[in-house]
Each structure stands twice: as structure tokens, then as C-alpha cells.
Computed example of a mutant assay.
Amino acid sequence: MKSKIPKSIDEYIENFPKEVQLVLQKIRKTIQKEAPNATETISYAIPTFVQNGNLLHFAAFSKHIGFYALPSGNQAFQKEISKYKFGKGSIQFPLNEPIPYPLIKKIVKFRVDENLEKVNKKVSKKKIQVQKKKS
């Protein structure tokens, strides 16, 4: 990839060879399908989806796709990601193996639900505080 920071996910994807572009676009479409209300952006110079906070990031490297579902996404899918190289908040999907789109779909759905739950807890907490003040 060129060294300048892309302004959009399209611009990011354009910087890679055609075969990698196809993988990146399919990952993007998988995320969009599971998180249709998410906003696309570039954060940390890589594609990012935001909905009620950061959902996830993904990036292409010479031999793998990095998928960053934050620590909670990895913790929830320990068994499924165990066959891949992974860290606290990252998973590496090798480009010379089939990309696990069904797993990506499950992780995205988990993160959407998790972020929504956090928002609902905050809203409930605020409602309780407002009710206490009125009492």
C-alpha cells in the first residue's frame, strides 16, 4: 500500500492488487450486510466500521487480512478463531486460505449487539438518574 493515509475505504482498497481488492470488498460487504446502520470511516489508517462506538477494523497485509473485533470479539469466538494466528484484539486470516466469511458475519453481529447493549445500559442508567432527581 502507498504510504499516504487513505480518505475512504474505497481509496484504501484501491491500493492493493486485484485479488486482494476482491477479498477486501467481500469482507466489506459482509460487514455492511450485518451492520447496515454502521458508518464507514478510516481510523488508524485502516477501514473501520462505527455503530454506537467502534465495531471493528480490517486491513490487508502481504500474506494475511487483519481483522480487529476488539478483545471482546476475540474472547467470544475463542474456539472458532483458534486455528488462526490471533492476539488480544486481532485475528490474521491468511490470504492463501479461504477467508471465513461466515465467522466474520457472526463476529460482526456479536459486536453490533454488544455495542447496542452498552448504549441501552447507558440510557437506562440516565433514566434512573433523572427519575431520582424528580423524586
Rank of each mutant, 00 (worst) to 15 (best):
H57A: 02
E11W: 11
E114N: 15
S62T: 13
E40K: 06
A59M: 09
G73F: 01
G87D: 02
K126L: 15
Q51L: 12
Q32H: 07
A35G: 12
D10W: 14
T30S: 08
S135R: 04
L55G: 04
A38M: 11
N52H: 11
V20Q: 08
E14M: 04
I99H: 04
K125E: 15
Q92C: 04
K126Q: 07
K109T: 13
N115C: 01
F49R: 00
K133A: 00
K125W: 15
Q32D: 03
G53S: 10
V20N: 09
E19W: 10
K109A: 08
H64R: 07
V23E: 11
S8K: 10
K79D: 15
H64L: 11
F86I: 03
E117Q: 12
E19N: 15
D10Y: 05
V112H: 08
F93Y: 10
N54D: 13
V112T: 05
F67E: 03
I46D: 08
K83N: 09
D113K: 13
A35Y: 05
Y44P: 02
K85A: 07
S62W: 01
K83I: 08
L103Y: 01
K122C: 03
K29G: 01
A60V: 07
F77D: 02
F93P: 11
V112M: 06
A69L: 00
F49T: 12
N120I: 03
L24N: 14
K29P: 01
E11P: 06
T41G: 05
H64C: 08
G73Y: 01
V20S: 04
I9P: 08
P36W: 10
A45D: 13
P98L: 06
Q78F: 01
Q129N: 08
K127H: 11
E97V: 02
Q51H: 10
Q92Y: 06
Q21N: 05
H57Q: 00
T48G: 04
G87Y: 09
S82T: 05
K29H: 01
I81P: 08
Y84N: 02
I65M: 08
A35W: 10
S124A: 14
M1T: 06
P6V: 12
K121N: 09
L22W: 04
V50M: 14
F93N: 10
G89W: 00
L55W: 07
